[in-house]
């Protein structure tokens, strides 16, 4: 005779507990953690590479990729502490992987940047313990992406439009892009950058620094 058992627990409860634990630890230390999510080739690594050369805070990076240490090598070359996670097929990072990576980073850090696996869908589903998600989308991807991938753009604290130096060369419906961000998330900070030309980078750093100061002022 079958019996019905009510459970009502989160499917990802175990990983979420790790994420909450990481967040509590980082809060105690006053460390800001950001989760950068965007398509492959959207410019996540280049944004970090160009902006973390001499920021007004101590930074560290956790790189997430299916394979290779190519991104780790690029961040290492600018002298920033970095750990590479290879998922060997996984399309997103999870808190249990971030926990192991954090153990290999120095403790005296102000901001940890997680560069998630290139993907606009799955990474938005998994909380890593971050303070903020940042949606990274390039001009070359087209202006229709926010409504096509609403979960990420809705959850992000900031939307960074990258490769703006390409605007004269690729069709990009700027009005639709920002209108759609408005519908999904009018409170999100909005930035336009060209990492390779250096445009908008100081605003990006100011945003991160602002988040860090706000976190420390709040005392968590």
């Amino acid at each position: 005779m079958p019996r019905l058992v009510e459970i009502r627990r989160s499917v990802m409860e175990a990983d979420e507990e790790i994420a909450h634990r990481l967040r509590e630890m980082l809060d105690r230390r006053g460390v800001l953690m950001l989760n950068l999510i965007g398509s492959p080739g959207s410019g996540k690594t280049t944004l970090l590479e160009r902006s973390l050369i001499d920021p007004p805070f101590r930074s560290a990076v956790i790189e997430g990729d299916v394979e290779t240490t190519r991104d780790l090598d690029r961040i290492k070359a600018i002298g920033v502490p970095v750990v590479q996670i290879n998922t060997h097929g996984g399309c997103h990072l999870e808190a249990n992987l971030v926990e192991k990576a954090l153990e290999r980073l120095p403790e005296d850090v102000d901001v940890i940047f997680i560069e998630n696996v290139g993907n606009l869908v799955c990474p938005a589903e998994f909380y890593l313990g971050e303070d903020h998600k940042v949606a990274i989308c390039s001009v070359a991807e087209g202006g229709d992406k926010p409504l096509k991938y609403p979960s990420l753009f809705h959850q992000a604290s900031a939307v960074v439009l990258t490769k703006v130096d390409l605007k004269p060369y690729v069709p990009f419906d700027e009005a639709t892009f920002w209108d759609d961000v408005d519908k999904l998330n009018p409170k999100a900070a909005r930035l336009e950058v060209s990492a390779i030309k250096g445009e908008g980078i100081s605003r990006w750093i100011d945003l991160v620094e602002g988040w860090l100061c706000a976190k420390r002022e709040r005392g968590s």
């Binding site: 019905l4 058992v5 009510e6 459970i7 009502r8 627990r9 989160s10 499917v11 990802m12 809705h154």
Partner: peptide
């Protein structure tokens, strides 16, 4: 300023067991 009241759940609701 809008809250998502429902729509982000991913729950194991129940099981039927022997």
């Amino acid at each position: 300023d809008v809250d998502v009241v429902q729509g982000m759940e991913l729950l194991l609701e129940s099981v039927e067991v022997e």
